[in-house]
Write a protein that binds this DNA or RNA. Structure first.
Lengths: 199, 199
DNA sequence: GTATTGACATAGCGGTCACTATGTGAATTA
DNA sequence: TAATTCACATAGTGACCGCTATGTCAATAC
């Protein structure tokens, strides 16, 4: 079970990379993107910035890698819901609500990070394109999930956007004061957003 | 109509303060809280940092002053809605939706700023208390507006929190891609959030 | 065993930023 | 008019940060 005392070069490198990423996730969660320094990220992983820069081109790429992992996780989770629930919308929505609740419980440190990075990217066209692409893929996965109940694809996309917006905002508020946003709220708000508009 | 060529000392000071605040609002909107520098704020107002620091104790106070003005504006607007619509909930909600739409149109530069500052304040207890106080006063104003339709005051507060969360998130998304969040969405999402939960 | 590679460390560069100590001159007061 | 005040300017200061140039030594290749 314990790691081999001697790792091959490749294995050691992969391990270092993972340690750096885990450290970055921690530091960004605690101090934000602008607030977290690459020195601290490296130090907490047990390395120096030299190591960090031999694995990542810079702070941006470090964050984008974490962002990618996260989006990929969401996509996988949603895909599983779709496969598992088939055409049973109610079950799918319930499972999605549960998923959001779980994420809210376990990843609240990420709250606000995406929007901070998004704002930071606003004035950097290349970066903005990358962030936008990832956000849109997440949005469209949700839109697919709810498209059967929406009048149109465009409407499903807008509702998905609203779901993401709501989720991010609630997550932030939950971080400030957990008591004011019990986890069940996520599922409840989702149900209301998905209710058919009556006019 | 034109300002007097000679201002009294007090009038000149007040004018300087307003110019600095307007400049700060612009710079923060463009570059965020961390990203905007006090030097640039002073320069854009036509002054130097010496002037800025003779009016405000620092960057935090500058932002908090703007934040106060903003919250005060919201409270005033909501109060007007309450007074104007009386017990007619539908009219009040429609007016509130209109208000949100107007704000979305005119103040999208503010998007993300509050949550950035909130996160920044998370590790500064004194600052966090001030920000939280202002946010709660805004939340409670909205909660009062919708309390008649909510099963309890606590529920009204949670719904108000969700409304704020949704609004901030949509505003951010609208800034990234205005086409993806037409203004009418704000009123629509509000209506759905206010719909009675059916189970 | 010798040569080569490359993962990571060390030290520092250039830049920015919030904030301060101090100066100055015009408005105010007496 | 002479003295005083104070709004604002000038010129730093120290700290931090992202990033890079370069060194080192152990793992690998031959």
């Amino acid at each position: 079970m314990s790691p081999p005392l001697r790792l091959t070069r490749a294995a050691a490198k992969a391990r270092t990379r993972e340690l750096l990423l885990a450290s970055a996730a921690q530091v960004f969660a605690e101090q934000g993107y602008a607030g977290g320094s690459v020195d601290e990220i490296a130090a907490r992983a047990g390395y120096t910035i030299g190591a960090l820069y031999s694995h990542f081109s810079g702070k941006d790429e470090l964050f984008l890698t974490l962002f990618d992992d996260r989006v990929a996780g969401h996509l996988r989770a949603i895909e599983e819901i779709v496969e598992h629930c088939g055409v049973d919308d109610d079950a799918a929505f319930a499972a999605f609500g549960d998923y959001l609740t779980t994420v809210a419980d376990s990843r609240s440190g990420w709250s606000g990070l995406e929007s901070e990075f998004l704002r930071y990217a606003l004035t950097r066209a290349e970066l903005l394109a990358k962030v936008t692409e990832r956000r849109e893929s997440a949005r469209d996965a949700i839109a697919r999930l709810i498209s059967r109940r929406a009048p149109s694809w465009a409407d499903a996309q807008i509702t998905a956007t609203a779901i993401i917006a709501l989720f991010e905002g609630l997550l932030m508020q939950r971080r400030v004061n957990p008591a004011s946003v019990p986890p069940v709220v996520f599922a409840g708000a989702l149900r209301r957003l998905l209710a058919q508009a009556t006019s």
